[in-house]
Computed example of a mutant assay.
Amino acid sequence: MPSDPLPDWVLTRRRVIGDAIRAARGNRQLSQEKLGELTGLDRKTINRIEQGTHSTHLDHLLLIADALNVPLADLVR
């Protein structure tokens, strides 16, 4: 069971991952809504992931990477 509250470094990494997703989405000129359509995720979920306020599933990250046509490693660097 993760500690509560989570360590600061976890929250920082979430934001870094969110920034990478936002940048890749911008490079593809996709809105959060369009990325949501491509992944089957709600736009609000995309927003929470990009803001780093949402603990996401690996499956969601895989769907996002596929929709953005980037390797998963590029998003979780």
Rank of each mutant, 00 (worst) to 15 (best):
T56Y: 09
G52L: 13
P7F: 01
E37I: 00
E50C: 07
I64Y: 05
R28W: 04
P2M: 14
V10I: 09
Q51L: 07
L35I: 02
L6F: 08
P5L: 04
T56R: 09
L63S: 03
H57Q: 13
I17V: 03
L62A: 06
L63C: 03
I21N: 06
L6M: 14
L30Y: 05
V70H: 02
Q32S: 12
D59F: 07
D19R: 14
V70Y: 09
I17W: 10
G26A: 03
W9I: 15
P5N: 07
H60L: 03
L72G: 10
Q32V: 03
R22P: 01
N47D: 14
L41K: 04
L58M: 10
A24D: 02
R48K: 12
R77H: 04
T39A: 05
I64F: 00
G40Q: 07
A23M: 09
A65S: 07
T12H: 11
R77P: 11
G36V: 06
L11C: 07
V10S: 13
R15H: 06
D8Y: 10
K34Y: 12
H54M: 14
I17L: 10
G52Q: 07
E33A: 01
A67W: 01
K34V: 02
L11W: 10
T39S: 05
L35R: 14
L68D: 00
T39K: 01
M1A: 01
W9Q: 14
H60C: 14
L63A: 04
D19V: 06
R28L: 07
G52W: 10
L6E: 15
L61G: 06
I17N: 04
V16T: 10
R43Q: 09
K44Q: 15
G40K: 07
D59G: 13
N69D: 12
I21C: 09
R48S: 08
L41P: 02
V10N: 14
E50N: 07
H60N: 15
I49G: 08
T45C: 04
L75T: 07
T45S: 03
D74M: 12
N69I: 02
S31T: 15
D59R: 15
Q29Y: 12
G18T: 05
P2D: 15
A65W: 03
K34R: 15
R77K: 05
A65T: 08
R28Q: 04
L62N: 12
G26D: 14
L35S: 00
I49W: 05
R77G: 00
